[in-house]
Amino acid sequence: MTKLIIIMLSAVFVNNYVLSRFLGICPFLGVSKKLNQAVGMSVAVIFVMLLATAATYPVQMYLLNPNNLGYLQTIVFILVIATLVQLVEIVLKRYIPSLHKSLGVYLPLITTNCAVLGVTILNITEGYTFAEAMVNSLGSGLGFFLAMVMFSGVRSRLEGADIPKAFQGLPITLVAASITSLSFLGFSGVVENLFA
């Protein structure tokens, strides 16, 4: 149980996907301008990360590993994720139209989001059990959510600021991201010592 909590906390704070592992930077920079968009995108990412892990973990353990097909991991995972996202979209559209309306636009672009493929591959390379893998995915998703929501606040402050012309747009956003990520560095070492 302690191990699960450690995995969870380190995924959210210490190894934050966006701010320290640089995965999912495109949505982080592209969709973080408005709070509601940031929340919609993050919820969709959490959802797809959990589903993707639940689908790819058994595929790796019971299909690829016993048949010595480990090298097909990349192709198989991206295909499984792409199909899964497509399927989820169809199911949502048919049965829960309200949810589809709020998450629908974000779903297709998550297929090629490196955070989702990244978490499924990392779960395998880290040698997690199924429960640990699911907790890690949830934690990574929550970490993504935290970074997105925090950063959308930072960006709304930037809107009114007087910025040199060359820095307007993405450059100042990246500098702001740098400072946000600096604040997350403070968490390194905390989680391990918490339970030591």
Binding site: P171, A177, S181
Partner: peptide
């Protein structure tokens, strides 16, 4: 570390 990456990238893009 991570913050340096964002910083260098931001400044390069501004240049």
């Amino acid at each position: 570390m991570a913050p340096g990456g964002f910083l260098v990238f931001g400044i390069l893009m501004a240049v």
